[in-house]
């Protein structure tokens, strides 16, 4: 792994992050609406205050969106031929993947920090410092599989197809993760399917972090399994993706 390339790539991504303001704005707006409405109530299922549950939800939502949006960057880069250019450099498939995941993590972290800051400053949400840190950390690490999904979409999709594919993936994952509406108001089978969705466990991981309780074994296994399978697909695809379009 090459530190200098990594740095240049990261600064390039963060300059693009200005265009991600909209990505940050949606979860913040939803947080302000829902948080101030039900904030003080207590969620007995998560053993957390509603405001905290909503903050974690919106943090997960924003971070997931930031990570998945990498797909557009990659599709654009690929369509202009940048990936072909990269193929004639020493950058390996793994190196490429690590760089792209790191970019997603950087933007995702920014989104998490913004949502938490708004929650603390505007809605006066209260958690012990370790609670915030662990919740943020859980969400942050938890978006790795989403960054990998973005890379995979970026590798497969044609530019015209990326937008609908992103929307379907994003909306599906947001719903299954219970990031919009609580899963218990949806049919039971949706709840069952959700158990396999990375977004569901992303949300859970954030809640466990916030409550400083719970067994992180299951989320780690599910998110880890997703990451492994996706990484294998990406590496396989990268080796085949060099031919001219």
């Amino acid at each position: 792994m090459n530190i200098r390339y990594f740095g240049l790539e990261m600064s390039r991504q963060l300059r693009n992050a200005r265009s991600l303001i909209f990505t940050f704005a949606v979860p913040v707006a939803m947080l302000l609406i829902f948080g101030s409405t039900y904030g003080a109530q207590y969620d007995s299922a998560a053993h957390l205050q509603w405001i905290i549950v909503t903050t974690v939800q919106m943090g997960a939502y924003g971070a997931m969106m930031a990570a998945l949006a990498q797909a557009f960057t990659i599709v654009n880069e690929r369509s202009v031929g940048w990936n072909r250019q990269l193929r004639i450099t020493p950058l390996s498939g793994t190196g490429y993947m690590i760089t792209k995941v790191s970019s997603a993590l950087a933007v995702g972290l920014l989104s998490i920090i913004v949502v938490f800051a708004v929650s603390i400053l505007a809605l006066h949400a209260h958690l012990p410092v370790q609670g915030w840190i662990m919740a943020g950390l859980g969400l942050w690490v938890g978006i790795i599989p989403f960054a990998l999904i973005a890379i995979l979409i970026g590798q497969f999709a044609k530019p015209s197809f990326a937008q609908p594919l992103f929307m379907v993936t994003f909306l599906g994952l947001a719903m299954l993760g219970g990031l919009w509406v609580p899963l218990d108001i949806l049919p039971t089978w949706v709840g069952n399917v959700a158990q396999a969705a990375p977004s569901y466990w992303l949300n859970k991981l954030g809640q466990m972090g916030a409550g400083l309780t719970g067994n992180i074994g299951t989320p780690t296994i599910v998110l880890g399994a997703w990451s492994l399978v996706l990484a294998a697909l990406i590496t396989w695809r990268y080796r085949r993706d060099s031919a001219r379009a």
């Binding site: 880069e77 202009v80 031929g81 940048w82 072909r84 250019q85 001219r244």
Partner: peptide, 13 residues
């Protein structure tokens, strides 16, 4: 080895 390939290009931005 260095190369200028067809369909290989630089980032417009």
């Amino acid at each position: 080895v260095g190369a200028m390939l067809q369909g290989g290009a630089l980032l417009p931005t």
